[in-house]
Design a protein around this nucleic acid. Structure first.
Lengths: 137, 137
DNA sequence: GCTCTGTTTCGACAAGCGTCAAGGTAGACG
DNA sequence: CGTCTACCTTGACGCTTGTCGAAACAGAGC
């Protein structure tokens, strides 16, 4: 129970329902808070940024460990939190495991935060957001 | 020490430096994580949404307390967290205290999450973001 | 003074962060 | 094939931090 936050977020939040347009329901707030809580740590935020900005859109764990003064298990724990929040996915290729972000979820969360502007047609997200792959573990 | 996160966020994060464009520095991640952590709770997220979407852009605490099955002190505590994160400000007018959001900070955080799109000139935030009022406590 | 509103203080309980030790998995070598 | 090493994850344990409510406190209005 918690291995579907991305799909569920897409379902509950829907496309482009800004925070300031109408009050969040209890379910919406729980799903959104799960993502924000995952991003509410400096280390995880840097991990996310490192992965997202890495060449090719993916980064090996070995690239991430050296940046911090933290042990391997700690990094792995943080990556697990980001994974379970639906923000990243890990794929094993040979010896190394490569992580990449779900840019759709980031865009979706970004759209939720945008204030309800009068000249905004609320069409920031491109399309096809509702059919995202389910988080894999 | 912690009563300037809005101005400091504007200063550290700068205008429109998406998460996926380049890795966050340690300072940037700390400031951003402070905001995300404040939003990483369902109650606080709903409070934020209730205030932002309320008529007139502001809401009395009495309007917020009835929505939740929580005691008054708990709501007050959550409001304090949002206040110290620079997301809202409270103003006393007579008997009641009215809260309103800082839409600039939301827009700023939203811009950080937007993926680095090729056709995006990174000019989402209007302007004048760097001269925001300092958080008042 | 008394009441209403909202905050602060304090304590109990739960959740999160970090390290050490152990468990899988994949490639290298004999 | 067996073993060895490297890479990453998982589990278990302290320690810190966060969440919540009862009681006490501060402001405004009658």
């Amino acid at each position: 129970m918690r291995s579907r936050s991305l799909a569920q977020l897409a379902e509950v939040v829907g496309c482009c329902s800004p925070l300031a347009r109408q009050p969040l329901s209890a379910d919406q707030s729980v799903e959104l808070a799960r993502v924000f809580k995952a991003m509410g740590d400096p280390v995880r935020l840097r991990l996310l940024s490192l992965i997202a900005s890495h060449a090719g859109g993916e980064a090996c764990v070995c690239d991430l460990t050296d940046v911090f003064d933290l042990s391997g298990p700690t990094i792995s724990h943080h990556l697990k939190v980001l994974r379970e929040a639906g923000l990243i996915t890990g794929e094993r290729r040979g010896t190394w495991i490569y992580y990449r972000v779900h840019p759709e979820l980031l865009a979706q969360v970004s759209a939720v935060l945008v204030p309800a502007a009068p000249d905004d047609p609320s069409g920031i997200i491109p399309d096809g957001i509702t059919s995202l792959p389910v988080v894999d573990r």
